[in-house]
Amino acid sequence: MFQRIAELITLLIFGFVMFYEFNRASSSASMPSIRRLPALDAIKEGVGRAVEMGRPVHHSMGQGQLTRNAEQTLVSASVLEYVAGLTASLGADLIVTVRHPEVLPVAQEIVRESYLGAGKPEAYETKMVRYLSSTQWSYVAGVMGIMQREKVAANILIGAFFADCILFAEAGSRVGAIQIGGTAGFGGNLAFLAVCCDYCLYGEEIYAARAYLTKDVFQIGGIRAQDICKLLMTGLIIVGLLLYNYSDWLYVLLSM
């Protein structure tokens, strides 16, 4: 029970910091800028190249569901909004591949609204958003086939990815696509994504994507709040480390 209370307090502190930063974002005129994330800048370049070459852009919604790895799926959806906006206005072909069926309506809606928003509803086609069955590897097989057959010019892999990312990234590099990757899960998979892609977002960087792309003050306030939480955490670790090593009573408390 004690542990749950500690968790709740942590959550409330986070919530408070977020709330405070949102309020500050709405009142103050100047917000801090976000450190450059070249991977997100590269999306525009990738879409531009696709237009020049007359080849499609591929965006993967990742392996995440709405009920599991939901955060990463939502990040992928945010990036898709941006990508679909670009392809609609610049006139590139877009292919969105979806693994989980419940993500399908979300992706379809985003692409449709983006094309409506860009004033080109007639450019939206059914076959832009494709469901490729619910298994991890049949999805991979389908995506690799599509990438090689349709010779994609840009390959955007931001979302939840696991062992599959090396296959996406290598299949993309075979057809000479610009590859932009990013996933929050850490380990060998992200390492391969980092090695194979031209540009990559590491770990937490993907959560800053929406703020970075929209340049919305509220979003940037949110990122600022994240940073404050991280600083608080680092401070806590250092203080705890010193107290634990110096003082006996805390040693007892922490060893409990």
């Binding site: 469901y131 490729l132 069955s133 619910s134 298994t135 590897w137 049949s138 097989a141 389908g142 690799m144 086939g145 090689q148 057959r149």
Partner: peptide, 20 residues
Amino acid sequence: ENRFYRFAEYTFIALSAAHF
């Protein structure tokens, strides 16, 4: 990328979509 791969790929997608 070739016809045989395409055959296996489409078989896989069909089987997995049906299974799920």
